[in-house]
Design a protein around this nucleic acid. Structure first.
Length: 261
DNA sequence: ATGGTAGCCTGGCTA
């Protein structure tokens, strides 16, 4: 089975690239983030022509996540149990889970955090707490079933995952509290499935501004966290760095993982 | 080059 995750930064703007990428790479399951469209406006018919069922969860202008599958799509869950909102009462579409064939998977778009100390940063940390609680429940339900959290975590796990740690000092994505939130997920039994470094870079995201991509100024923030059954079945993992090239690219590249499931 | 780019929906927010 091939599973991939991709922050497309607007599924509408990315539709030609998305359809071509699906056709060329044929993932069994694709998790999308930053749809930037409503659930009703998701191009379900276009991906259905390629054989994919869809669980889309959109809100319109920002956020939005989806799971595409051609190996079944069951037990769909929208939002994490107890997912915090921003503001408090507004739960944003940032999580969708489903069972696809023998795999249980969640597509996640973790809040950015903006700046340490900002209310959005506290929201991000609270969001991770809900994610840990949800993961605990999922792992207890079916401990032996392959399980993975995939998506845009908006945290670089280590200093090796940012192009220049000095540039990010005192910024979000690298703070001890954010990395502790990732460590908590590892403590629950998940493994960071690290993609092969292509061109010497482990990155999955390059800012649009300032020619970051061509300068090698990226970050690895799109992650695949799998349980033991998932991690043991991995045969390959890589970043499709070429998808970041050219006009009309997302600022994130797809992360692809092949598993024996 | 006195912030840079892209995407949403129209001057500003978000990343």
């Amino acid at each position: 089975m091939r599973i991939a995750t991709w922050n497309v930064n607007s599924v509408g703007a990315r539709l030609p690239r998305l359809l071509a990428w699906l056709d060329n790479n044929r993932p069994d399951v694709l998790a999308l983030q930053e749809l930037k469209c409503t659930t009703a406006d998701f191009p379900a018919a276009a991906v259905a022509e390629l054989g994919y069922e869809v669980a889309a969860h959109g809100g319109g202008r920002w956020n939005g996540v989806a799971l595409l599958s051609r190996v079944g799509l069951a037990e769909v869950s929208y939002d994490l149990p107890g997912q915090p909102g921003f503001p408090e009462t507004e739960v944003e579409p940032r999580a969708v889970g489903a069972t696809c064939g023998g795999l249980r998977v969640w597509s996640l778009y973790v809040p950015n955090g903006r700046e340490p100390g900002h209310p959005h940063y506290e929201y991000k940390l609270a969001w991770f707490q809900a994610l840990a609680a949800a993961t605990t429940l999922e792992l207890a339900t079916s401990p032996q079933r392959p399980f993975a959290l995939v998506g845009d975590f908006n945290v670089a796990p280590t200093d090796a995952d940012v192009w220049d740690p000095a540039v990010f000092a005192d910024s979000t994505h690298v703070t001890p509290a954010e990395r502790a939130a990732l460590a908590r997920l590892l403590d629950l039994g998940l493994t960071d499935i690290k993609p092969r470094a292509l061109k010497g870079e482990p990155y999955t995201f390059w800012d649009y501004r300032g020619g970051s991509f061509y300068k090698g100024q990226g970050m690895r923030i799109d992650l695949v966290y799998g349980n033991a059954a998932f991690a043991a079945s991995v045969t390959d993992a890589y970043v499709d760095r070429d998808e970041r090239k050219g006009t009309g690219a997302s600022d994130h590249a797809p992360v692809v993982v092949d598993i024996n499931v």
